[in-house]
């Protein structure tokens, strides 16, 4: 079939394209200030980060055991503590710095920016 060199070239090109795409997708912070805390497809909370004046935190528990502590500060949100096996949600840091949602796979938790709701009113 294909020569080894062809495979290498093919993979190198694919890797380059994927790298650039990832960099663009994950590197550019998404606009907006309203975030949704979603567990198992259900929106638990909707928070307008621009309206937060004092930091606070809340705990999202996963029915099968485990929990994530979400920290909300003026303008930003993160998972401060979690007892999921990988702890990736905590290491993902602040949502505002990224173009991707915060995800905790084991606890089915997603914290994402809600696009349109970031408006305060609509002139029509």
């Amino acid at each position: 079939m294909l020569k080894t060199r062809t495979w290498i070239l093919l993979f190198a090109a694919a890797a380059l394209a994927l790298g650039l795409l990832s960099w663009r997708l994950l590197g550019t912070p998404v606009e907006g200030t309203v975030v949704e805390v979603v567990q198992d497809g259900v929106v638990l909370r909707e928070i307008d980060l621009s309206a937060v004046r004092e930091a606070y935190s809340f705990v999202v528990t996963w029915p099968d055991g485990g929990s994530n502590t979400v920290l909300v500060e003026p303008g930003r949100i993160c998972v401060a503590e979690a007892d999921c096996p990988d702890g990736l949600c905590v290491r993902q840091g602040w949502l505002s710095d990224r173009g991707a949602p915060l995800v905790c796979l084991p606890h089915r938790l997603v914290i994402r920016l809600k696009g349109e709701g970031a408006l305060d009113g609509v002139s029509r």
């Binding site: 309206a51 004046r53 003026p74 609509v122 002139s123």
Partner: peptide, 23 residues
């Protein structure tokens, strides 16, 4: 928001601008 006329008083509580959509 008076039926589509939007009027803002000051800025948002956190000091940022209001974001007003235009249809």
């Amino acid at each position: 928001d008076l039926g589509g006329n939007v009027q803002t008083v000051g800025c948002k509580p956190d000091g940022s601008n209001w974001r007003v959509g235009v249809k």
